[in-house]
């Protein structure tokens, strides 16, 4: 797929020398440390949940994908992997599988496949699961005594509820927001990942490393994560300083799905803006919404909905930031404007 002569407007990030396949697989490679960490923290449950969601995505792509070769480009694999990383370790496998299938079918294939989708498919799957099974997706079983023990009722039968023991641990965000004696989890714990949460939510450090690797390889537009972090930090810092919110800015950055969302979900090439200016707008919007949802919303976490909402605005951002209209200093990006 070296299309140097053909101009593709949908994914301008794909440059002539690179192929979709190459980029996709390097994303997968950059996620290996995160996956390894989740297995280290959560044991075999992590592998099972990841495999189930990947299976859901691959199968759906195989069954309904528009082009026969679409399975090999690795995008379905990434969707499954990312979706799995947003799920709690004790999640029933049938739900993870269903979420993968739903995200793939209704987040991507229904729009016409890779490059045509409006929303990040992994987040569509996650949003569906959040709305369909709100209890299961917010149940974080207390850590098991042995590493090899399952983290919850992974093997609940299809359509049946998981049987969860009464002791469920809270995530740092949930604890601060709804806990009886709200404690701000130390940032170092969040950074290293020794806290409860979804598979890929725990270690900020490893995601950061993976993200930097991708940015260095040029597969990821670093403007997006940077703008998200800056806006989240500034806005939550402002609220914290004014005493409106109880979330310290650093805690905001390193807790929940912030890292994973900023590096891997928001930067999805298909669903993010084309110009760097647009990316800053996009990132600022996400950061702003995350702070709003976390501080005032009914949910402990808001990264998913923020990214999905901003995904929907991408066409408008692209139009508003078309370089040729007013841009006198942005000529270098001219070829990007569609």
């Amino acid at each position: 797929m070296t299309d140097s002569s053909v101009k593709i407007t949908a994914s301008p990030h794909v440059r002539s020398a690179e192929s979709t396949i190459k980029i996709m697989w390097s994303v997968v490679i950059s996620l290996i440390p995160v996956v390894a960490a989740s297995i280290y923290f959560f044991g075999p449950s992590a592998i099972l949940v990841l495999l189930a969601s990947i299976a859901g995505c691959l199968l759906t792509e195989r069954l309904f994908g528009s082009t026969p070769g679409s399975l090999a480009d690795g995008s379905a694999m990434i969707t499954g992997l990312l979706l799995g990383l947003t799920l709690p370790p004790g999640f029933p496998l049938w739900m993870a599988f269903l979420g993968g299938g739903f995200g793939m079918a209704f987040g991507k294939i229904i729009f016409g496949g890779l490059g045509q989708n409006v929303f990040n498919p992994a987040l569509v799957g996650r949003a569906f699961l959040q709305a369909a099974f709100p209890v299961a997706i917010t149940t974080w079983p207390a850590k098991t005594q042995h590493w090899w023990a399952l983290q919850g009722d992974n093997f609940a039968l299809p359509f049946m509820s998981p049987v969860v023991d009464a002791t469920s641990s809270a995530t740092p965000l949930g604890n601060l927001k709804f806990g009886d004696d709200p404690v701000v989890t130390p940032v170092i714990d969040l950074f290293l990942g020794t806290t409860g949460g979804s598979l890929g939510e725990t270690s900020a450090l490893l995601i950061l490393l993976g993200g930097i690797y991708l940015a260095w390889r040029g597969h990821l537009n670093w403007h997006i994560p940077l703008s998200i972090f800056v806006s989240t930090f500034v806005i939550s810092g402002l609220f914290f300083a004014l005493g409106i919110s109880q979330f310290p800015p650093l805690f905001m950055l390193f807790s929940g799905g912030m890292m994973l969302g900023a590096f891997y979900m928001a930067t999805d090439m298909v669903t993010s803006p084309i110009t760097n200016k647009g990316c800053w707008l996009f990132g600022f919007g996400i950061g702003f919404l995350v702070v709003i949802i976390r501080v005032w919303g009914g949910l402990p976490e808001g990264v998913m909905y923020s990214i999905l909402l901003m995904n929907a605005l991408v066409p408008f951002i692209n139009r508003a930031t078309q370089p040729r209209l007013f841009g006198t200093s942005r000529k270098k990006k001219k070829e990007a404007g569609s």
Binding site: P134, V135, T138, T139, A166, S168, F178, G179, D180, G298
Partner: peptide
Amino acid sequence: IGVKIGAGKGKPNEIDTITGATI
């Protein structure tokens, strides 16, 4: 006052909130 199940201190004005439906 609302407390999480099991986190109460036995005060007479405590109500155990519902897990997953805290709000």
